[in-house]
Each structure stands twice: as structure tokens, then as C-alpha cells.
Design a protein around this nucleic acid. Structure first.
Lengths: 218, 218, 218, 218
DNA sequence: GATGAATGAGGATTCATTCAT
DNA sequence: TATGAATGAATCCTCATTCAT
């Protein structure tokens, strides 16, 4: 609920409402600019002045909406996570146990790859040994969220596994996905599609034995 | 005898500049310090002053041996690559075709994980969307070298595959390895060992069908 | 109304960036400070921090208006040239052929000496074998402009001379002027006036034979 | 007498003598290097390390012979002055009053131009608004010496003039010479020769009326 | 709320000079 | 003595952040 500001009580004060309308636009504008800059230069090398410039506003304006550079990255991450949940949430929803593994993984990967290729910042933010201190929190938060979802998915498929095993497997899956995403983002067209397929294969083959070899073509 | 320095310079590696032993020690010291700092903060956020401080010398001393920050990272990378080749080179040497895939992958991963665990900078340097310009060259060089080695390994195992397929597979393997390394570095003791095993499994299962399912236990 | 800044920007000279009045004042202030520092220490030895300090602002402020030290010198030079043209331009305008040489030279020297005495940086900037790279361009530009003006003046007075001769004579005149300026700036009061007169004499006697000895007292 | 170190008492101590032999070579070597560097970059921008490198010695060695950068310039200046005196001293020796002005000036300029084109540092050192503080002393010293010589020359030619007039005239002559030198150094071949002639003309025409119009062709 | 200006600490790098070997 | 190493203050410049308008 990062948008509860919008659903807040609307008193007679006219300023708040208008402020929020304009403010939301500005915030979106700034976050888009930040996304572009982060993608280009990475978080550490991105300067708030550059973000403001990219957004077409003055540095002062930027700081009217974000207390500091970190907050921009955090909000950006939050919104991405939110959008991901809204739009692709069901990609990680518990699957019908009857669904063949191949199909389940295939569709999940397709959805996430679509999202991530449309929002390359996501990768940039979730992928930095350059990202300092506090941001790691957002990173970790997202990581935890994603891992949690994968874990619950896996849990239903690997009833015999210990919690630690499930967690580990989830981390490995996420790691494979991130590695794959990097490769996918580095290629285009047919080659990109081929990489997507490879990632699916990696995951399918990795998970098949763990989930009882419930392969679709069995 | 102003040139006796030159006559004694023939010892080590024919460095363009004749250095004193002290200098070599300082360089090693600086590179170690840099490794620590890069690991902690990432390349972009690492400051040369911080490296000098970590090495216990003044900024000027650092610049007596390295023309700039980039050169430090490059030299560090070069030395790591060199050491890797010296010590673990055969890890990617063509394997006896009779070797079971499981064993081949297992030993290669073990060797590389050992190296990377002992030299965590390696990962930090080879892993940055934040790493600018020239360093990318070293990065790319290493990447190309590694990929090449993996490719030639795979080529002998996948005689039917196209060159493009082999290349793609090699990239995927390297990607999996890097993702796995990140997980391995994030854990310790038994859990770390478990992750190492997972990575081996991922690779084995990924490659087995490609190389004719030449599994040891077949 | 985020663009009202743009609509008001049409006033002065269509600067690429809309500046506030405060900014323009700062720029003037900085240029004045730079002029003082350049005069005192010369361009090379002048530090941007010293200029900022002299202007009573922080280093960052200086760099808000000038990308580097060179730009300060260039802008300073440009403004001086501009002012010189505005105020003293006609000093080198083609003279009435009836004007005695003595009078023509006398008035030109008087005007230029006045300007240069009031703006001693001009000499400092236009006079350095120590001035590096890009500044030389402004220097050369001005030099070319001045020489050109002198040439066209001389051309009308020395109709029989070759272009090369005219150019050479113009360079010599400018050289004499600059040498004289140095002497003038090094003295004050009556002595300064005496030097001004000497320079006039040097030029008159040098040019008289070349221009047909059209001396006023002939 | 900057070389009195050489003429000093030679005791039984063998070191001093040998040191001085080697030392003199080193000093000459360093001064030549300094001359080249000063010519290229100007005094301020010249670094002692660059001078040492140019001389093919280490910074430490440089400082074994010169206490600081300034001292190098000073010694260089002294030696140049000395050499100038040795070789071209008579160029400014009192002339036979019978010598036509044209001839006297012509030969003096020829000699000095020869010296200065063979030793371009001289100009570089004697010509810097970039030359800071203490060096100005050498500068001034030389300036005074030269001016003094010119003054005594002029004094014999302008018996009616006041001391102040003579001094002023000497300064003007020296200024003209320096300005001319700059032009001469900026050209080559025939054009250079033409500029030399121009300078002679300037001086002759300037001085002729002052010295009683004792022109050779009168 | 928006702007451009202002800040000043910090970062990369240089350089005159000193030191250890 | 010669060398290369060491120093650290000073340079140029950047940037997150705050301020005045």
C-alpha cells in the first residue's frame, strides 16, 4: 500500500488534494527519470542532479518529493514490486497441481521476462554490489518477497523436502532467473528468445527431479 | 654506476620500470587493500583515498604505482586471472571423454569455487553493471577467455551442436556459475557446501541432455 | 507555471540557460575576482579555489557557472574584447587620409592605453607563453582581429606594399604596443605618461617612412 | 662568478674534487633538461619531476643539486647571463662614437638574436607574468644588468639627456627587442630574417632623432 | 511548489619535496 | 651519490543537499 497517501481523508483543505495530483505526476516523472539514469549509470554513479535534469526539473524540486537519493531508489523499487504484483502476481500464484512443470515454469518465466525487459531498472536495482547500505533493504525486501513466493510454490510441489531445502531451492531458482535475465537483456530478437528458452530448460531440468519428475511429457 | 639499476632489472618479469623490492611489496599491499575496499563498497564507490588509507599509505604513494583508479582494478583483475590460470588452469582443460559428466563438472566447480571463495574480489570485479569504461575491457577479456574455454570443452561434448548453440550454452553455464557463486559467498559452512552441490546439480542436469546423457551412473 | 522562467529569459542575450539576476551578478563577481587573481599570479598559477575565495563564494558556486578554469579565462577574454569593441572600436576604424599620422597614432594609442590600463587582465591574458590549449584560441582570435584591423589601416596608408609586408608591419606594431603596454603598466603618473609618449614616438617614427612620411608637421 | 665553486681550494680530500666533476656534469645535464621543459611548458607548469625525467635522473638526484625549483630557474638564468656576457658581451660594449647608429644597432641585434634563438629558454624565463615571486629577482637582476648596459651605451650617445630619459629610452629599447624576439622566434627562414630587419629599423628610427640623427648615410 | 543558486565536504590526481636504501 | 619510494598539502572538480526568491 504505497499509495495510501491518495486514499487518505480528503478534508476541506484544497491544497492537499491539488498538491497530491500535481505531486503524483511529478513523482512519477522523477521516478521515470531516475529509472533511466539508474539503468545508464548504475545507482552509485547516478547523481541527483542528473536525475532532476533528466526529469526536466530543478534539483530543489526533486528534494521536495524525496528526502535523498536513496529514497528515490527505494520508492522506485517499491513501485516496481507493486506493479509486478498487480500485473504479474498470479505468475507465482500456486499452480494447479495438474499443470505440467514445463508449462508452469514456461509461463512464469515468460511473464517475468516480459516485465523485466519492459522495466530494465528492476534488474539494475536488484543487482548491485554497488548498491550501498540502506537500499539493500528494499533489495532484501523484494528478494524476500520473491523468494517467499517461490518457496510456497515449491513447497506445494516438494512436500517431502525440509524447509531449508525449499528455501535453498528457491534461492537457486531466483539466482538462475537473474543470471538468465542478464543474458536475455544482453541479446535481442531470436537470440534473446533462445536464451529465454535456455533458462526455462535450466529450471525445468533442475526442478524436475525435485518435484517428482512430474514432466508434462511423462 | 647510475645504470646498475637497469642491469639488475632483468630479474623478475621485465617490468618497463625498474622497481625496488619495496615497491613491489607496496603494489601487493595496495592491491590487497583495493581488493578489500572493492569488496566492501564496489568499484564505483571505492575511493582511491580509501584504498590508500586501507593500505596504510598516503594518496601520493598509491599514484606512484597506479595512474588512476581504473588501473588498480585492471591490475588486480589481471593478477587474479593470472593466478587463476596458474593454479586452476587445468580445471577447464579438455577432459578425458571417458570422465563422467558429473565428475567433470564437480571438480571444475570445486576448483573455481575454491578460488573465488578465497578471492572474493574477483566476483566483485567481474560483476558490475556499475563498472565503467576501460575496466569492462578486462571484464570482457576475462569473460571471453572463460567462455572460450567452456566452449571448447562443450564443443567436444556436443559434436552435433552449432557454434551458436555452443556459445549460448557456454554463456548460460557461466551465468549459472556466477549466480551460484553469489549464493555461495552469501553463506557459510554446511549451507555453503549445500549451495555448491546445488550448482553442480543445476549444471549437470542442464548439460546432461545436451551432451548425450553421458551420466556416470548411466 | 513551471515555464515562466523560460518566457522571461528572452530579455538579455538569449543565453542557453535561463539565469536569475543573482546568477548574472555572481558571474560578474567571479570574473572580476578572476581578473584580479590572473593579474596577480598569472593564469597557470591561478587556482579556481583562489578565484572563488577572492569572489567570496564557495568552489561549488564557481563551477555552477563555469565548467572549468579555462572557461573563466575565455569568458573574461570574450567580455573584454566585446567591451573593447563597443567602447573603443572606432580607435582602429579607417582614418581620414588627411589625418596626420602623428594624430592618428596618438589617438589610437591613447584609447587603447586607457582601456588596457583600466583592464590590466587583458594584458595578462593576452600575454602568456604559459597559457595552455584552448585559451590560446581566444588569444589567437583576438590577435587575429587586432592584426586584421591594423592591417586594413596600414593597407590604406601603404598602397605600394605587398600583403606580406603589411602583415609583418602590423605584427610589429602590435608587438611594440604590447611591449609598451607592459612598460606603461609598470609605471605611474608622469612616468607612465612619458612612456605612453615614447610608444607613440616609436610607432610614428617606425611607420612614417613606410606611409610616405606624411607627418603632420611636414 | 657563479662558478667559483670550481675555483675553490682543492684540499687533500678527494671527494670534493670528484664530486664537483661529476656534479658539474649533472648540473649541466639538469639545467639543459630544465631549459627544454621550461621552453615547452613555461616555468609554473614545469614540474621538477618532469625535469628530472627529462634529464634521465631521479627526483632525489635533482634535489641533491638544487634546493628547489626556483633555484633551477635562477641558476639557469645566471648561466645564460654569464654565457651571454662571455660570448656577446662586447655587443653592448661602448661603441666607437664614429660607428654609424645603423651599424651599431644592426650588429647588436644580430648578436643578441643569435644568442636568443640558440637559447630560447632565455626568452621563456625573461618573459613570464607566470613567473612567481622570487624568480622575478633573477629576472629583475638580468633586466637591470641589460638595461644598465643599454643605458651606458645610450648615455654616450645622448649626452644632453637626463638620467631618467636615458633610463626610459633603455627600457623602451629592451621592450622593443623582447617584442621583436617573440616575433622572430615565431617565424622561420626568410620571414624570420625580415622580422629581424624590422626590429632593427624600429630601433634605428626610434633612436636616430635622440642621438643626434647620426645616421650612417647622413 | 518551483527554481536556480549556494554550499562544502569529498574524490581523483599532481607535485614539490624529503627519506630510506 | 643515486635511486625510487613516500609524503601530504593543494588542485580541479563533483555532488548530495539546503537556501533564497
Amino acid at each position: 500500500m504505497p499509495d495510501n497517501a491518495q486514499t487518505q481523508a480528503q478534508t476541506q483543505k484544497e491544497q492537499p488534494r491539488r498538491r497530491q495530483a500535481r505531486g503524483e505526476r511529478r513523482i512519477a516523472q522523477l521516478l521515470e527519470a531516475a529509472a533511466r539514469v539508474f539503468c545508464t549509470t548504475g545507482y552509485t554513479a547516478a547523481s541527483t542532479n542528473a536525475i532532476a535534469r533528466e526529469a526536466g526539473v530543478s534539483p530543489g524540486t526533486l528534494y521536495q518529493f524525496f528526502p535523498n537519493k536513496e529514497a528515490i531508489a527505494i520508492e522506485l523499487g517499491d513501485r516496481l514490486v507493486h506493479e509486478m504484483r498487480e500485473t504479474y502476481g498470479e505468475a507465482l500464484a500456486p499452480v494447479d497441481p495438474a499443470t505440467p512443470l514445463e508449462e508452469a515454469i514456461g509461463s512464469a518465466i515468460d511473464r517475468f521476462m516480459t516485465f523485466n525487459t519492459e522495466h530494465p531498472v528492476f534488474f539494475a536495482l536488484m543487482h548491485g554490489p554497488d548498491i550501498p547500505g540502506r537500499i539493500a533493504e528494499t533489495h532484501d525486501q523484494l528478494h524476500t518477497t520473491l523468494t517467499g513466493r517461490i518457496e510456497s510454490l515449491l513447497a506445494s510441489l516438494m512436500p517431502a523436502a525440509t524447509a531449508a531445502d525449499v528455501t535453498r531451492t528457491a534461492h537457486v531458482c531466483l539466482g538462475i532467473y537473474k543470471a538468465g535475465l542478464e543474458l536475455v537483456l544482453a541479446h535481442e530478437g531470436a537470440e534473446r528468445a533462445a536464451y529465454v528458452q535456455e533458462i526455462k530448460d535450466v529450471l525445468i531440468r533442475y526442478l524436475a527431479p525435485l518435484v517428482g519428475d512430474r514432466l508434462g511429457h511423462g
